[in-house]
Amino acid sequence: MTALLEVAGLRKSYGDRVVLDDVSLTVQPHDVICLIGSSGSGKSTLLRCLNLLEEIDDGVIAFEGREISDPRVDPRAVRSRIGMVFQAYNLFPHLTVLENCTLAPRLVHGVSRADAESRARELLGRFGLAEHATKHPDRLSGGQQQRAALVRALCTSPTLLLLDEITAALDPELVGEVLSIVRAEAEAGTTMVIATHEMAFARDVATSVCFLDRGRILEQGPPAQIFRAPEQERTRQFLRRVLPGGGE
């Protein structure tokens, strides 16, 4: 089985500040990789490098067996295969939910309006947003908006889904409704790389957990190992702080 995404020796800096340092990561089809670590550890930047929103300073990113970190690669071709959901939803406020969801299928993938709408409506219905399809995003609650953003990303049937702390702006009650969708997608076999602060969620859905600290992947392994028996002292420290009950 060839890897869907292969990152080797990735480095990214803003001026003197090194944000990612020698990061290597392999994502197999149907993997759910959870990136954990404190704010500023480089999780978001890593995700943004993966779909070429940021130009990298060194290393190689290969997607579907082809190097996409080559400057000659058309980033739009890559992004049309990778979906991304942001912390602040980033829905287009001037379009209805349905229009948000059909924009990329119609403009980028050449799907007819009717087909795009029927697919979007089906997904919106599955995520409990059927009656909100013709509303504008600002009319919805945070949880509904984030679910709409997930539908927007899924409408193009991406082979890889990047989720950037998608529950960080939601109150605890709404977190559940968003995560249950992500969990369903994970079970359906969608390949995902997820930056998250939700440790319980990571423990449940991840096939592999990466702990990032100051731009490096300090430790990676199956959730059982990372959460129960972390090898690094730094990881233990972090988990003690974020897990109620002192890390186990």
Binding site: G9, R11, V18, D21, D57, D58, G59, V60, S69, D70, P71, R72
Partner: peptide
């Protein structure tokens, strides 16, 4: 982290970026 120096691939990439520019 000051010991980092660009890998051959990165140098090649810079060359490509330059010629694209």
């Amino acid at each position: 982290m000051s010991e980092w120096s660009p890998s051959p691939r990165e140098l090649e990439r810079r060359g490509i970026r330059r010629s694209l520019r």
